[in-house]
Amino acid sequence: MPYLINTNGKEEVSIYYEDYGSGQPVILIHGWPLSAKAWEGQVPQIVDAGFRCIAYDRRGFGRSSAPWNGYDYSSLAADLNEIITQLGLDQAIIVGFSMGGGEVVRYMTDYGTDKLAKAALISSIIPLVKKKDDNPNGVPQEDIDGIMEAVKTNRVGFLHDFNRNFYNYEDLKDRMSEQQLHYDWSIASNASPRATLKAAEAWADTDFRAELQNVTVPTLIVHGDADHIVPIETAGKQAAEGIANNRFEIINNAPHGLNVTHKDELNKILLEFLRK
Rank of each mutant, 00 (worst) to 15 (best):
I84K: 13
Y73A: 05
Y71C: 10
Q91S: 14
T85K: 12
M99H: 02
E82D: 13
I84N: 14
V104E: 07
D90G: 12
G88I: 04
I84D: 13
D72C: 06
I93K: 03
V104H: 11
A92V: 10
G102P: 15
Y73P: 08
S65M: 07
L80D: 02
S74L: 03
L89Q: 05
D90P: 01
G70H: 01
A92F: 06
F97N: 14
G102C: 12
E82S: 13
I83R: 00
A92Q: 04
Y71I: 06
S64F: 10
G101M: 07
S98A: 13
R63E: 14
S75F: 00
S64M: 08
D79F: 10
A77M: 08
D90M: 03
G101H: 05
V104D: 09
T85I: 00
V104F: 11
E82M: 13
V104T: 03
M99T: 11
I93H: 12
Q86P: 10
M99S: 13
G88R: 00
I94P: 15
P67R: 02
S75G: 06
A78P: 04
A66T: 11
G96N: 08
N81I: 01
A77C: 10
S98G: 09
A66G: 11
D72F: 05
G101N: 06
D72W: 05
E82H: 04
A78Q: 12
V104Q: 07
W68Y: 14
I83W: 04
G101E: 08
I94T: 04
F97Y: 15
I84S: 14
N69M: 08
S75A: 14
F97P: 05
S65W: 01
P67V: 04
R63P: 11
D90E: 14
M99L: 09
I83E: 07
S98M: 02
N69R: 02
I94H: 09
A66L: 07
S65E: 07
Q91T: 01
T85L: 10
F97V: 08
M99Q: 10
I94G: 13
S74R: 12
Q86K: 15
V95P: 11
S75P: 12
L87A: 10
L76M: 15
I93P: 14
Q91C: 04
A77G: 09
G70N: 00
Y73L: 13
D79E: 10
E82Y: 03
Y73I: 03
N81A: 10
I83Q: 01
N69H: 08
D90C: 07
F97S: 12
N69P: 00
N69K: 05
G101S: 11
M99A: 14
